[in-house]
Design a protein around this nucleic acid. Structure first.
Length: 416
DNA sequence: TCGTGCGCACCCC
DNA sequence: GGGGTGCGCACGA
């Protein structure tokens, strides 16, 4: 089972619950996912946690109870309206105010929360910080307090995990026991996390912090196998040899380069209606890189690691390879890598990517909106066209030639 | 019992 | 006034 599938299920479920005006809480989400897809609640719970960490799903304390939001929608709405700051402030204030309302709910530690929410109110500057950074921000701050692997928030999740693992879905409301789950487990999850982390209130974590957090999450939050059945781990575990070869940034780069060479000239791409644009984009990218344009050179100099993550030639090339029928093994190795890499892209990586792809101006918008690899994967057409406040022309190109391609490649890989 | 639909109130902008 | 959220109730399977 791929993470992508769970992501889809969970997001659908959240949307569905929202559409019928039901609170998207853990219990409902788990139940609905199980009913619709037969997924075990504990697994859903784990995946949800993962999505929260990825900021694909936002966990918020709304009106005294935990709710989950589709981050993409929250962000889109926020941006659509006005300034990101406003959105962030709104969320923070809203949650802060509701935390006030939730005084009776001691589990959430409303006092601290309010303080920090208020603090966030003045410190947050990016919309993605509003809720999206609840977890991440927290983590970053926790990271300051101590080594991330042992940070409180991670501990919280870790502590939470066993509960879920053994007793299944959590019931945040605690009003009635959910099937196979102790009535308080969910509350425990929420409260522990809330108390430890402090959602919706911290200053925006740096892209690096996010990356770090992601790493921390993977290593600390998902101590159990089933808790982290994600593709990264799966693929890394299942194909160690191949992976090791592929993870060599230079190796990857070289492979890609070769393909680029063939691909830049060619383009027997077809079928897909997007191919022409797409191919053009690829070629453009390839040229950009091989020409050694300033953008490409301006990539953060973190070198190998970053290059590995941000090999801008690799993705399109791989996509092309897919279309051109390049050797499966070879491609799958790189695809694997790409799929992992993309998830690990930091805000800077994304910005650098677009900058190197010939959209330096627009890259700034991505950075401003704090779009990292995960966010990128969640972006929809409208997000790119309207959510970034960039000109329509470049926006269309960016979406059709890059965002869409990256997403398709990514999910294609996951489904292989 | 459970899933769903929705009126309504509340809140924020 | 518009939009987001979710409680609480009604209804159908």
């Amino acid at each position: 089972m791929s993470e992508a599938k769970y992501r889809e299920w969970i997001l659908d479920t959240i949307d569905s619950l929202r559409s019928r005006k039901a609170r998207p809480d853990l219990e409902r989400i788990c139940r609905m996912v199980r009913r619709r897809h037969g997924s075990e609640p504990d697994r859903t719970c784990a995946e949800l946690e993962k999505l929260i960490q990825e900021q694909t799903v936002l966990k918020v304390n709304y009106k005294g109870s935990i709710s989950y939001r589709n981050a993409a929608k929250v962000q889109r709405r926020s941006r659509k309206k006005d300034d990101v700051t406003t959105a962030a402030r709104r969320s923070a204030v809203e949650e802060a105010s509701h935390s006030d309302l939730s005084n009776g709910d001691s589990a959430f530690g409303p006092v601290d929360q309010d303080e920090e929410d208020l603090e966030a109110d003045t410190s947050m500057a990016m919309d993605t910080d509003s809720n999206a950074d609840e977890e991440g921000a927290d983590e970053s701050r926790d990271g300051q307090d101590g080594p991330s692997p042992g940070r409180p928030e991670a501990d919280a999740s870790v502590r939470c995990a066993p509960v879920r693992a053994t007793s299944a879905p959590c019931s945040p409301s605690g009003t009635r026991p959910s099937p196979g789950c102790g009535p308080v487990s969910g509350l425990d999850c929420a409260s522990v996390q809330k108390a430890g982390e402090r959602p919706s209130s911290l200053p925006p974590p740096s892209p690096r912090a996010l990356t770090h957090n992601d790493w921390a999450y993977h290593s600390a939050v998902c101590p159990t196998e089933r808790q982290h059945p994600g593709m990264q781990r799966d693929k890394a575990a299942t194909k160690p040899a191949v992976h090791s070869a592929a993870t060599s940034p230079c190796a990857l780069k070289n492979n890609v380069k070769k393909e680029d060479g063939g691909q830049a000239v060619e383009s027997g791409l077809s079928s897909d209606q997007l191919v022409p644009d797409y191919a053009a984009g690829l070629q453009e990218e390839t040229r950009n890189v091989s020409d050694g344009r300033p953008q490409a050179l301006s990539l953060p100099s973190d070198n190998c690691t970053l290059k590995n993550k941000l090999d801008i030639t690799s993705f399109p090339a791989e996509e092309v390879s897919l279309l051109n029928g390049v050797k499966d093994d070879e491609v799958s190795v790189k695809k694997e890598n790409m799929s992992q890499n993309l998830m690990q892209w930091t805000v800077s990586d994304v910005a650098s990517y677009f900058s190197a792809a010939g959209f330096p101006e627009q890259a700034v918008a991505f950075r401003t909106q704090e779009i990292d690899g995960k966010s990128l994967l969640l972006m929809q057409r409208s997000d790119v066209l309207t959510g970034l406040s960039i000109r329509l022309g470049p926006a269309l190109k960016i979406y059709e030639r890059h965002v869409k391609v990256l997403q398709r490649t990514h999910f294609h890989i996951l489904n292989m």
